[in-house]
Amino acid sequence: MLPNLDLEVVGASLPFLWTGLLFSLKLTLVAMSGGIVCGTLLALARLSSIAPLRNAAAAYVNTLRAIPLVMVILWFFLVIPLLTGKPVGAENSALITFTLFEAAFYGEIMRAGIQSVPRGQVAAARALGLTYAQSMRHVVLPQAFRNMLPLLLTQTIILFQDTSLVYAIGAKDLLKAAEVTGKNYNRPVEMYVFVALIYFAICFALSRLVRRLQARVAIVR
């Protein structure tokens, strides 16, 4: 039985949903940029010749990948105030958590990217007199990044979907905004369907974009 849908609530909720969407996007962008930077460092550590560094990075990545994201979110929400001695709020906690969590995933992608660059290029760069840092910065990483761009973006789509899990600590993202409006107007059905449509539209469009990009950025050797 299709309930009589009330589309007015959808219109009335738009400004509120917009605020929620902005937080979801901010969280996605911060975690993506922070995650790629930290992830690249993690990847370099995992490929390093220094054993303790290599093992520490591997332990970090493997641990985070084995625990559900919800648990990681709860962990940080509990531990950060204990470490800093003052409450940081759900939003800030989410920003820190997602950056550190996504670093493990972006790190594995960057590691594959670095390994996809032929070894001869590193040898050639070092033979030309470039230091390790220079050969990474000018030769290896640009190619690794380009090779992995589609995968990095696919991970970002997953990340955007996962931001909805800040529900566990009550941060005000897109889903939370929809839920609160649904409760206030006593119209949860409309709001859940509407928010699902928004997520679908964004993720579907992005995944199409990635597929196009994939065909274009492939390096012709």
Partner: peptide
């Protein structure tokens, strides 16, 4: 595409709160 492009948590809410209303 349907099941891959909507967050799992949102899908949970859809099945729990919305689907029973459509029956």
């Amino acid at each position: 595409e349907l099941f891959r492009n909507v967050p799992l948590l949102v899908q949970m809410f859809l099945w729990f709160f919305v689907v029973p209303e459509l029956l």
